[in-house]
Simulated assay, not measured.
Amino acid sequence: MADQRSDLHWLALRLCRGLGALELPVMRGNGLSLWGYEVLVRLADHPADSQLELAGELDLDKSKIVRVVDELEAAGYAERVGGKVDRRRRAVEITAPGRRVMRSTAADLRAVEQRLLSRLGAADDAEAALRGLGLLVAALRSEEV
């Protein structure tokens, strides 16, 4: 029997899980975890002053961010460096190989997303879906306490 639910939470959860399942082989093929990719994307914008800063921005547990940064550092995609003000504090930066793998992964993910969005039919429908999701995310941010 086909799923009949149409409430936003259920649909968003199905979308998140389904998209994650489609993206996981892309990540693995690029030598990354889903969180590893998210960390690289964040670091590509600007270095993190600390792992704690990264954890907070990505809404990850402190112990999880340490493992993710460990994996990225072992692969040569990120590095911990001494803080400029406080040497005890370790900043996290993306490396040149990290930028390359992030760009390659992003291109592969865009192909997966385009394949999925093409199921909506017209390009206008795909743009409307993305715009609607963006508006919902923005609305949630304004609701947060």
Rank of each mutant, 00 (worst) to 15 (best):
D3I: 07
R5Y: 06
S6D: 12
D7N: 14
H9Y: 14
W10L: 08
W10N: 08
L11D: 00
L13D: 11
R14L: 13
C16K: 10
R17V: 07
G18H: 00
L19A: 10
L22W: 03
E23Q: 11
E23Y: 08
L24N: 07
L24A: 15
P25V: 00
V26C: 02
M27W: 04
R28H: 07
N30K: 10
G31S: 07
G31Y: 04
G31L: 08
L32F: 04
S33A: 12
L34I: 09
L34N: 08
L34G: 12
G36R: 08
Y37G: 02
E38G: 02
E38S: 10
V39M: 06
V39I: 14
L40R: 03
L40A: 05
L40C: 05
L40Q: 04
V41K: 12
V41S: 07
R42P: 04
R42D: 07
R42L: 10
R42I: 02
D45M: 07
H46W: 10
P47F: 13
A48P: 04
D49G: 14
L52I: 11
L54H: 04
A55T: 05
G56F: 03
L58V: 07
D59W: 02
D59M: 07
L60I: 03
D61E: 12
K62N: 09
K64I: 04
V66M: 04
V68F: 01
D70G: 03
E71R: 12
L72F: 06
A74H: 13
A75N: 05
A75C: 03
G76R: 07
Y77F: 15
E79T: 10
E79C: 14
V81I: 15
G82R: 12
K84N: 06
K84R: 15
D86Q: 00
D86E: 01
R87I: 06
R88G: 08
R88F: 05
R90T: 03
R90L: 11
A91L: 05
V92F: 02
I94P: 09
T95M: 11
A96T: 14
A96C: 05
A96W: 14
G98N: 07
R99H: 15
R100F: 06
V101H: 06
M102D: 02
M102V: 02
M102N: 05
R103N: 12
R103F: 11
R103S: 13
S104V: 10
T105N: 03
A106S: 14
A106P: 01
D108N: 14
R110V: 13
Q114M: 10
R115P: 00
R115V: 01
L116Y: 03
S118M: 00
L120F: 07
L120E: 01
A122V: 01
A122I: 00
D124N: 01
A126V: 00
A126E: 01
A129F: 14
L130I: 14
R131A: 11
G132R: 09
G134Y: 00
G134W: 00
V137D: 05
A139Q: 12
R141S: 12
S142M: 12
E143T: 09
E143R: 13
E144D: 04
E144I: 11
E144V: 13
V145G: 14
